[in-house]
Design a binder for these strands. Structure first.
Lengths: 202, 202, 202, 202
DNA sequence: AATGAATGAGCCTTCATTCAT
DNA sequence: AATGAATGAAGGCTCATTCAT
């Protein structure tokens, strides 16, 4: 049987899930505490027991969601062997997700970016997030350099370019799914990555 | 002396400037009509005289701002000779702008993206915007291919990768100016672009 | 050529017409000065030249409209010979008007009544109006009494009953034209009047 | 102790009472949500808790008030024996009410009529209301016809004439209480009704 | 732990009125 | 005479937050 603190943690997770779903559906700017409470099967007062303010709830929700996303990509990457495979393997799984899930992820991501511009805490959260992504990719690149597969290079800049391309292409896919299909996005991503990496091959 | 319609146009521009400034300062989600009215030196009622609703004003403001930005980049590009120069020349001038201006541009851009997720009109505006950027870059790439400087390639995908890298790097610069300085951003951009283009050289 | 004061009077009439039309269309509660100005082919400022305030304009419009209506009924009555004919002839012409015109008249009438409840000036206007109607009918009844066609009676009360029936029936016609057709209204009116008058016949 | 749903119903009634009182005092066109909230001893937000919009509140208030009025007249009618007595008994109790209450009733009635002209829902409400009145009176008349007290007649038309006279006379009383006293109104009503009915007596 | 009634601040919008031109 | 820009007050509605139960 779950202990009291565990029950509390479970309830908080349920609320965070509800918050994320509501944000993905309506956009964080259009989400009210009442919406989230309803989605979580709680009253507004009940919600207040777990999260003192909307701001706290939103921050937690972003962190919570980021964690899940990060795990998803990290596992995909870890399952690959070799630097190039890792870098491609980082992104490709995304294209096999339901478009609805990708939509949700991007809505939330861009909401967070938008909020970051005027809120130091959101900004710190976003920067931390970016750093973790870059660190992951940088490690793969450094491994490739160490193994002599890539030549010497500023691996952080390269990681950033790769991340940017990934984000750029998937953003277009997300915004224009009828124009930029999954197949197109997948191919564009792989070609760009290979182009970027090719000169580093001996 | 300015004619009546001209005066009206001037006043609208002043209001749009005020709107953009206020959005850049507070984030579009935190901008009220009263804020904009005050920034424009008008009463709320006076503002309503020019823009019937907040939605109309915001849409016009985004268009207005985009036009100015687009001209800035287009002129920088047009001033360059040769495909590679054009593509680099498109982005480099940004790094010589005041960081405050770059900040403003990115705040507004990401606000628009965030709004686009739940508003068809904003989405259309954003997609149109993206298309114009891509078209501009694609033309330079096609010119390079035609002149035999680049080999055959899907020029639209390449344009997108380049745009993405540009956006990704400048976003990092914008979010972490103390970490990612102007010099770093400039170098990272140029290297990534050259890497992407190099394999296409004979 | 019309003199200056005449021109002013013509302009005022045009505005009053515009006001009445707008009130009939939207209901006086939903009529703005801008609406009236537009209907009169004037700007808001132009309108202000002729009527200093909305209240003044409305009062004038009600009076103006009432005058026209009153003339319409009075002429119909005057064209009849004999007391019963006059009383029937007062109401019957209404049923031959366009339903749209009757609608307009009732909308304005009930707006005025509604306004009267909280505005002494409107109330006075309405009472004066009622008195004039009653006086007209009372005269016909008194004539009938004098001629020995009707027996002695409180002719004012009788006039009021007749007016009320007229208003009641036409109101139902106006509210439910599909249920209470013109033919029905006409017949109900005539029968009620004859019933009321019959006992007074020797 | 009242249960939760009961408490909610009580509160809603209190608010509807407050709304009716405020409408009777100021006229529905001049009633704000803040007025009603204050009259109900609530804040504006508290009021919104019970009625989502002004329109909903107004519609409920009209229905609520009508119900009470209808019960008042129906009970007076039911307490009488015989067709003529019922028809007279329907109206006469009104003249024993406080003039303030009659005023309130008429203000609200005419506000509703005025609103009906441009709002389908109010119109439906008003028509339904009228139908109920007519049905009540028609039943008494039909009873009289069946019992041979009145001769055959279109009982609905007759009910309408009677209703109209009642409304007409009380309206004059309401508008001009100093001119048309209670005694006058009472007498005028009774005489008109008897005149209308007399020809139907054998 | 949970409810939901209640608050109060804030926002968008409408509109009669004024006034410089 | 006429315009329409500008004002400022007022109203309806939303919503995060508080609190008694």
């Amino acid at each position: 049987m779950a202990s009291i603190p565990e029950l509390e943690a479970i309830r908080r997770s349920q609320i965070l899930d509800a918050a994320i779903n509501t944000m993905a559906k309506n956009g964080s700017a259009n989400v009210t505490m009442a919406d989230i409470a309803e989605a979580a099967g709680l009253s507004k007062g009940g919600l207040a027991h777990y999260f003192k303010s909307k701001d706290e709830l939103f921050k937690e929700a972003f962190k919570y969601y980021y964690s899940a996303i990060f795990q998803f990509f990290k596992q995909a990457m870890d399952a690959c062997d070799g630097p190039i495979e890792k870098i491609l393997g980082f992104g490709l799984p995304l294209f096999n997700r339901e478009i609805a899930q990708v939509n949700a992820a991007y809505k939330i991501l861009y909401d967070l970016i938008s909020l970051s511009a005027h809120n130091e805490e959101y900004r710190a959260l976003f920067c931390e997030w970016i750093d973790e992504w870059l660190t992951l990719k940088k490690a793969a690149i450094d491994e490739g350099i160490k193994n002599g597969i890539f030549r010497e290079h500023d691996s952080l800049s390269l990681a950033m370019s790769i991340s940017s391309i990934f984000q750029g292409i998937t953003t277009r896919w997300y915004f224009n799914p009828e124009l930029h299909t999954k197949e197109w996005a997948e191919k564009a991503f792989e070609e760009a990555i290979r182009s970027l990496l090719k000169p580093y091959l001996i």
